[in-house]
Design a protein around this nucleic acid. Structure first.
Length: 458
DNA sequence: GCATGATCATGC
DNA sequence: GCATGATCATGC
């Protein structure tokens, strides 16, 4: 066994799990008892491997060693590398108590300062008892990360202090998010400065941050990353301030001039122009990914504005599959996940024929607008389920019932394909045409929404 | 002029 | 071969 007050003893006991599954490691009777797939991997491990009873204390799982145990699923990429399957949920936010805390004295830090991580490979065809443990390690925050996490924690708690717990969103913060936690959207709890009950949420690491933890524990080097922050800079500045501080000197300059000044040959029409241009301005090597952006899962988008500040185009997102959307729930669909990200929007503007860099804005969607996007998504889901996509065909063009800009001020649905014959199969044949596949479509954020709610308000 | 349908270009 | 970011084009 192990000594529960000795950290090293706990860690080496945990490391015996490597390349084994629960069936290999726990009592046969307990395993048989659990075979129905009851209980999560983590609960079974705590009870039947480490042999302690489940608790939801504010204390770490191994109090005397100051170690918290966390288990989390991995997925494999085509390149065989491991990635986190999802965000890592830490402790539930007690809205009433947390407003009395400071970060240094917080139950969050008390519980999660040192974490023993057990990552197992999630394979759909296997049961919980068969998942193989692939990575075990101890994690405590590097100084730079801790500063960012402190800012995130403060942002979340300030919002609760302002009576806005019901408006919290994962996109509010960078590494540490307030993710929803509960069976469904009706898992509500009281908040201290507003009578309105708020969705239950938990402090959690963004998936991008967990990926970084995985790479670190696995000892992978990360030469493809460039860094924005030093530990010293992180002490006094937020990611936002550092990024905007580097971009602001270029506001108002033409793209041509910026490129000429830097002496770097950038292809303006290339697909990766946005990423290269941002790297150029931020002083990061062009072929590198920005570590802080990857960890915070920041989505960078460029928008071209006309003279009246209207984006030339609405903003597209990945296509949805008709056969999938009818089975999904809003709470676990891709569109909602994307809208809960933090965005860095780079606005470029036309002055006659010349394009110049106007400004950059960090943005994340507020709950009010996420709910409106939900309405668009639900309408889309309903008409795909009913097979009522096509309204009429006129002059060789198909007119559809998909939600348009007239339906919602926030988002609409439009084709996003190579051509009309580039299709995904339909779960229900279209009633009007009998088609069993339809042109690929995706959700778009309305260009006038971007102008009114993002550009003009920042 | 704008909304909506249609398509292009690039990179993995 | 396809996803993704970006852009074009027609008809009201």
């Amino acid at each position: 066994m192990y000594n529960p007050s000795d950290k090293n003893s706990i860690v080496s006991f945990a490391q015996k799990l490597l390349n084994r599954c629960l069936l290999d490691c726990i009592e046969k009777t307990a395993a048989e008892d659990l075979y129905k797939g009851k209980g999560s991997f983590g609960q079974i491990l705590e009870k039947h491997y480490f042999g302690y009873d489940l608790n939801s204390d504010s204390e770490p799982d191994f109090p005397t060693a100051g170690l918290e145990l966390k288990t989390a699923p991995l997925k494999t990429l085509k390149s065989k590398q491991y990635r986190s399957k999802e965000r890592l949920v830490l402790n539930i936010i007690n809205y009433i108590d947390v407003v009395e805390e400071s970060f240094e004295t917080s139950s969050f830090l008390k519980k999660n300062a040192q974490i023993l991580l057990v990552f197992y490979l999630h394979e759909p065809e296997k049961t919980v008892l068969e998942y193989q443990v692939k990575l075990v390690g101890e994690w405590s925050f590097p100084q730079t990360d801790l500063e960012i996490i402190r800012n995130d924690w403060n942002f979340i708690v300030e919002k609760i202090r302002a009576g806005k717990a019901h408006e919290l969103s994962e996109g509010d913060t960078f590494y540490l998010g307030a993710s929803t936690k509960g069976a469904n959207a009706s898992s509500l709890r009281a908040q201290p400065f507003n009578e309105k009950r708020a969705m239950q949420r938990a402090f959690s690491f963004k998936q991008g941050y967990v990926n970084h933890v995985i790479a670190t524990l696995a000892g992978e080097s990360k030469p493809q990353y460039g860094k924005l922050l030093t530990a010293l800079a992180a002490k006094t500045k937020t990611i936002e301030a550092v990024v905007l501080g580097r971009l602001q000197p270029y506001y108002g300059k033409t793209i041509a001039k910026i490129i000429a000044e830097t002496g770097v040959a950038l292809n303006v029409t290339a697909k990766n122009f946005t990423a290269s241009f941002t790297n150029l301005l931020l002083g990061i090597e062009l072929d590198k990914q920005i570590e802080e952006f990857e960890k915070a899962e920041i989505i960078v988008k460029t928008l071209r504005l006309d003279e009246r500040n209207l984006p030339k185009e609405s903003m597209s997102f990945p296509n949805f599959k008709y056969e999938e959307i009818i089975h999904l729930h809003w709470d676990n669909c891709d569109f909602k996940q994307i809208l809960e990200h933090k965005f860095l929007l780079v606005f470029v503007k036309y002055n006659g024929d010349e394009l110049y860099f106007d400004k950059a804005v960090f943005w994340n969607m507020e709950q009010l607008h996420i709910r409106e996007a939900q309405r668009v998504w639900l309408a889309t889901q309903a008409l795909v389920s009913e097979g009522s996509i096509v309204k009429e065909i006129k002059g060789g063009r198909r007119y559809t019932h998909f939600p348009t800009k007239a339906f919602s001020a926030v988002a609409h649905v439009r084709p996003h394909a190579l051509n009309a014959d580039d299709t995904y199969p339909l779960p229900v044949p279209d009633r009007q045409t009998g088609l069993t596949a339809y042109t690929k479509h995706c959700f778009w954020l309305n260009n006038d929404f971007i102008r009114d709610e993002i550009y003009l308000k920042s």
